[in-house]
Simulated assay, not measured.
Amino acid sequence: MDHQRDELIQLLRSKDTNISYEKAGMLIDLLKEDFEATYAKAGYEYQGQEMAQRVVEQWIQSYGGRIHEIAAMNERYAAILSGDDDVKQ
């Protein structure tokens, strides 16, 4: 799973070159959690990590370069993006 997470982080960072590895990882984790929670609340049967991985990858492909705009609409995401990054990997 770490390999898949790392792939998503690298994909996000290729779309948004100003985001640090750490922030990208936190955003990936939040996006997956939010997707899974919303999917469950809608009453759908759990489809596994693969489904969450695919959906988050699609979001990154579609919105990765503008993730900061989308995140600004959600307090949890905005808090992650507003923190200072002293070191970018």
Rank of each mutant, 00 (worst) to 15 (best):
T17N: 08
L27Y: 02
G83S: 12
L8Q: 02
E57T: 13
Y77E: 07
Q10M: 07
K32A: 11
A37N: 11
W59N: 15
Y21R: 14
E69C: 03
S20C: 08
M73C: 05
R54D: 11
D84M: 11
G43R: 01
T38G: 14
Y63H: 14
D84I: 11
Y21A: 06
D86F: 12
Y21T: 09
G43K: 01
Y44H: 15
D86M: 09
L27V: 07
K23V: 01
R13T: 07
L12T: 00
E22D: 12
Q10F: 03
D85Q: 10
T17P: 07
S20Y: 05
D86G: 10
E33T: 10
Y46D: 15
A71F: 01
F35V: 03
A37L: 07
N18Q: 12
Q10I: 02
D2L: 07
Y77G: 05
Y39T: 02
Y44L: 08
I19D: 00
Q61P: 03
D2E: 12
I28H: 03
D2V: 02
V56W: 01
L31T: 04
M73W: 06
M51G: 00
I28T: 05
F35T: 04
L12Y: 00
R76D: 10
L8D: 01
Q4Y: 06
Q47N: 04
A71S: 12
Y63C: 07
E33M: 08
Q89T: 10
L11F: 06
S82W: 06
E45N: 10
R5S: 05
A79H: 04
Q4N: 07
I60V: 13
I70D: 05
E7C: 08
R66K: 12
V56T: 14
L12I: 02
I9N: 02
G25V: 02
Y44E: 14
L27D: 00
E36I: 10
E22N: 08
R13D: 08
I28A: 04
K88Y: 15
K88R: 15
M51W: 07
E57H: 11
G64S: 08
S14E: 13
E75N: 08
E57Y: 09
R76F: 01
I9E: 02
A52C: 10
Q58I: 05
E7N: 12
A78W: 05
